[in-house]
Structure formats: C-alpha cells, structure tokens
Design a protein around this nucleic acid. Structure first.
Lengths: 352, 352
DNA sequence: CGCCGGCCTTGAATCGTTTTATCGCGGCGG
DNA sequence: CCGCCGCGATAAAACGATTCAAGGCCGGCG
C-alpha cells in the first residue's frame, strides 16, 4: 500500500519487479527474494536496506512468477453449495478466518448445487494449482475430487459423512443424532402423528435426519412407519417449504400431523408462512422444528425450534484439517464429527 | 476432467505441460498454445490432433505460466462487506453469473466491514494481477482503490453513489427515493410521529434514506425535524435492531412513534422481535418498514414491508460495467443508478 | 518458370520469481 | 602461515506458458 496516503491519480505505473528493488538496494535479485521468503537468512543491515527499497518503490510481489517457480500457491479454494444460504456463509466465515490467520487466501466458489459448476470450480483450482480446497460436494460422486487429488491438490470434505477416511479428511455433524433429538423433543411433548418435510433424498443429510426421527419413535414404542409420514421436496429453500403445505396437510384435519420436522430451517420458515396464511397456528395447531438454527430462526415469530450445528466452528475445523494436511508431513486423514444441539423456542409446544 | 469416469486412486501424477502435449501431437509448443488461445489460426486437422492429445494426457493449463507471460489474468475480485448478509450474497450471485458467462473466475473476498481486511483483499488482487474488481467499499476512503487502479487493475464500485464518474464506474440505488417512498407510504397511512432506525451515519446509504424520509415529511406539510426522530446504531444487523427497542420506545407510550423506518431489514427484524417480546403488536401498535427486501422479509410474521433493491441485477450490471472497461477500448466511466420499489406487506397499517 | 502472397507452423525470447551451486571473505584451529 | 569452515551474497538456471519474427509450403498470377 502507498506510503503516502493519497496521491492524485497519475498515469498507470510501470510495474516494478524484484530486479528493480535489487538494483535500488544494491543487492542481487536472489537476495531480495530471500528477504521476502526467508528473512532470517539475510544479514540485518541488508535486510533493512531491501525493505526500505521495497517501500520506496511500492513493490508488490507478482504471485504468478512466484508460484510458477516454486510450484506452491498460497490460495485455497472453498466450494459451497449456495452462497445465499446462511448456513453455508456462516461456515465460510469460519474457513476464511482460519485461513487468514495462516496467511492463505480463500477463493470462494459457488457450485449452486449444480454438478457442472462444481466441476468448473474444481478445474479452476487445478489450473491455479491451488494449495488445497474445502469442498461441500454437490452429490455422492467424488470422482472429480479424486481427479483433483491426483494432481496433488488435497481437500477436506465438509458436511458429508460418508467418505472413508483413507480418501481424505472430512468434517460432519451427526445428523442421526440431530433427528433423534428433534424426535425425542416432539414425542416428549405428546405428539404421535409426525411428518418429516424432507429435501431430496439424494442428499445424505436428509436421509440421516429422517432415520434419527424414526429411531426416536422406535425408542418411544411408536411404530416408525405408522407414526412418521414423509413429504419430499426437490429443494431445500423457503419456496419449497411454502409449497409443501398442501402435501403436509393432506388427508384433512383428522389426519393432519401434530408436528412437522423439517430438513432445514428454510423449509420450515416457508412452511410456517403458508400455515399462517391458512389460519393454522403454530405451535397451537401444529408444532414445527427446523434444522441448522440459522440466524433468522430466532427472529421470526414464533421463534423457530431448531437443531443447531456449530457452523462457524465446522468451517474453522475443516480449514485446520486442511492446514495439517498441507504442512504436517506425518498427516493422516481424519474424520471430525460434531454433535448437534436442539434449541427449543416457541414453534413447538405440548399437544393440546 | 478425466475422460474415463472414475479411476482408482493411483499415485500422484507428474504434471503434464504444454510441451508434452506438443510432442504427443507432433507439433511445437507454440501451436498448442494457439489451439488453446486462438484456435481459428490453426488448421482444422492440426487442431484436432492437438485436442486429442490434450484429452489423452488430461492436460490442465497452468495459469501461473500463462498469466506470467501474457500479463493478463482471467480472474476478477469481488469484495463484499459481509458474506453472511443476504443482500450481499444476492448481489454476489449476480456478479458471479455474469462473470461465468464471460469465462472469468470470481475470487470472492470478505472485508467483514473492516478497513484492514479490505486492504488485505486489495493487496491480494494486486499480487494476483487480477483483471479487475467489483468492490463494495468499507468507507469513504478510496485511496487504496486508487492505488489499485494505478497498478492497472480497474474496478467498479457497488452500492456507493458518491464517486465522481471520472474515477471509475459505479452501480448504486437511489436511496433518497427509497426513503421517500417509505415515508410517503407511512404518511399516507396517517402516521405523523416517525422514527428512523439508522445504522452508522458514516454509511452514506443511511444518511440518504433518512433524507428521503424527511423529504416525504416536508412534502406532506410536516416539519421534518419535529416529525422524525432518529436512533443511530453502530451496526446494521439483527442484534443491533433488537437492542434498539428501548431507544425507539423512549419517552413512554404517549411519545411512542407510530411508525419506524429501519435502515435495513436486519435491523427491522431485530426490532420486530423485541417489540413482540414486549407485547407491542405490529402493525396494530407500531408500523415497521425495512430496507433491502431480503428473502426472509416475506417469511416472517407479520410480513415485513420493505424497500426492495434489484440485488441480483445490480450484481450483474456491475460485472457488465467491469467487462466493458476491460474489453472495450473506448470505454468511458459510467454511473448506473437503479430505482428502489416499495413492497407493502403486513407490518404497516393505517393509524388506529 | 519465377515470384508473390497467404496460410500454418516453428523456434526462441520472454515474463518475474525461486532455487541451487558457487564464491569471497574473515576468523579460527592446527 | 595454511587450510577449512561458515556466513552472506551472487549468478544463472529453472518454472510453463505466450508471443513474434521468421520460414516453409502451396497455389496463382504475370
């Protein structure tokens, strides 16, 4: 950055390279490089002279040249499924904070839940010879990720538990436990006719959360197949939740579920809205539980009971695993598993 | 990407370069480069042979080498103030979609509203010799941005209207008009005792929205200084909104505002929550208007009346301006201004 | 038949940095 | 006094792609 605060916009400057700095400081380019990368190997006086020259010329390192020669790059990729989803952005914040501390730059890429865009993103990272990547995979097909690893770019999976440890590190949350907690909560409130409002079953998380819910039923002596009805929606957003209301209420008031457990908060928020429109009150007429505990869950009225995941911490942990893989020669792949916690608010209450 | 779908994880492969491809195709490296960058200059047959070799060897271009020599880079930066804010992520989506169409990669950087992080991000872009940047500046100090431009990296400002056109392109929304629309709406409902719940006044948007609100008062024959009370908060998030409730209600029921206009939706959501906790009903007791019209505004209960900005379109437009600056030699800086629109929902109603 | 021009292709120079082998120098031990 | 060692600094060879001047080939025209 400029030494003097704000200069009048003068013509575009010819870029200054390491050689020019060297000339100015009266040393060789190699020495400048050493000052930049291994300052301890340079004598105090020389180092100071070089740093002075760097400041005076306002030299900025060219990372192309640098990473071309060294083979290394100091940026890592982060591929998220949806930049507009609060869950992912919170995770991204964690990844970023940890990376910044380690002096790495994060290239945030959005796969928009589309395999082709994930593919593009991975290819970009390969072209950039990125140091590594944190990836929330778009589906169960990891072949592109193996392709990336073959090229020497290692990755950590986020939010996908099914990866055998020998393929790479991973961070996930126990979705079964989350479903179980939600189920126990609802059952303890006296609800026996439940609906699981799911996203696509292709998504492992949805399946696991449902399994947890069923386990809670079994545990309480309820027959899971009878107690839990499942409504599957093709997406995990609010619109899908709102549109699901008919399917959820299908069968008339007598068969209406006493409680709905949603695969994520956005579905739940959409559903709540539609229920309200129809004059069905939450929690008086129906209890609703969400998943993720995004910020707005506490802001809506009624406050949404939700299964919380340590989003920010998951991001940090993933980045830490990646850093370990990059720096620690004795690294072994590892799978970290977080525990979800139920946050009870106003959208659930005892059966009338 | 691999031609064959999924190979068993074999040892890390030695990277294949342009030379190897050339050898395989029986041509010179220069020709391979031409196939990659100016295919029309290469004879049909040769081109095919080279492409075949590329596929067989699964060659991936090394962007370090490429941009080192050419001076160009095919990635652009996008610096947002807060990755977790829905307004920004929606804008980011627009920027990204437009960039992808143009074959550019987007490096998304989060300044977290902190000048030092914005500085870091700009420096990173300088080191990477990025093609350009779309920036939502963290404050009014543009000296670092000038510094960037001096280095030949051009930028487009987003959501900041005060930049003289000769310094760079910009995209903004008419905040005064937004405040005016909100004010007219509230006044037409009969409200005369208004409060503006603001973020930091250092942020131009807040000031302009307030000015618009005042203009609406003046227009209706109300004395702005008497009709509008202002509550300033240091941040623009929900927590700040929730904590503002006391200041908003200060003075007892008699002096309680009939309507509150909030500088953004998150403030409004926080405020709504706190009002609800105190048993104050919206819109019966107090009308509330937000700003930005983020997704959840329509999901909360009551639905939040809000001033909508064309978030996604703003992102696209910003990227288009940047592309024009990069590709069009006769480019002249331009300032695009969008118009906000008021979206009326349930959080505002006529004075009782 | 010779020359010219257009189309493809080539070879070599080049981008800015890192790295490695080498060198000069002064001090220390033998 | 000599040789050796180690510290600091240097020069030159990479890294992988792009670019550009130059050359080869072919067909057409004079």
């Amino acid at each position: 950055m400029p030494a003097t605060t704000s200069q009048p916009p003068s013509g575009p400057r010819r870029p200054v390279g390491i050689g020019e700095v060297a000339a100015r400081a009266g040393v060789s380019p190699g020495t400048v490089s050493n000052v930049l990368n291994r300052p301890e190997r340079v004598a105090e006086a020389t180092r100071r002279r070089v740093q002075e020259a760097i400041r005076e010329l306002d030299y900025v390192r060219n990372s192309s040249g640098s990473s071309l020669r060294s083979g290394r790059s100091d940026s890592v990729g982060l591929i998220v499924l949806d930049v507009t989803n609060p869950f992912f952005t919170e995770v991204a914040r964690g990844v970023e904070d940890e990376a910044v501390e380690a002096g790495l730059a994060v290239i945030l890429l959005n796969s928009a839940e589309r395999p082709d865009r994930q593919r593009r993103s991975l290819r970009l990272l390969a072209e950039q010879r990125a140091a590594g990547a944190v990836v929330m995979p778009v589906d169960d097909d990891l072949s592109d990720l193996h392709w990336l690893r073959q090229r020497g770019i290692s990755w950590v999976l986020l939010d996908r538990g099914d990866v055998a440890a020998q393929e790479g590190c991973g961070v996930s949350v126990d979705n079964h436990a989350g479903g179980l907690a939600a189920g126990r909560h609802l059952i303890s409130l006296g609800h026996e006719r439940l609906t699981f409002l799911s996203g696509p079953f292709a998504i492992e998380q949805c399946r696991d959360r449902l399994a947890g819910l069923r386990a809670a039923c079994a545990e309480a002596g309820l027959e899971p197949d009878a107690a839990v009805r499942v409504v599957e929606r093709p997406q995990l957003n609010a619109r899908a939740g709102a549109e699901a209301v008919e399917a959820v209420l299908a069968g008339g008031p007598r068969r209406r579920p006493q409680a709905v457990f949603c695969a994520n908060d956005q579905l739940a928020l959409g559903l709540l809205k539609s229920l309200g429109r129809r004059g069905i009150r939450t929690p008086d007429d129906i209890s609703v539980v969400g998943y993720d505990d995004i910020d707005v869950a506490s802001l809506v009225h009624p406050g949404l009971t939700s299964v919380a995941q340590p989003k920010y911490e998951m991001g940090r942990a993933a980045m830490r695993l990646l850093l370990s893989e990059l720096n620690d020669p004795g690294h072994r792949h590892e799978r970290l598993r977080f525990e979800p916690t139920l946050v009870v608010r106003d959208s659930t209450s005892a059966r009338r």
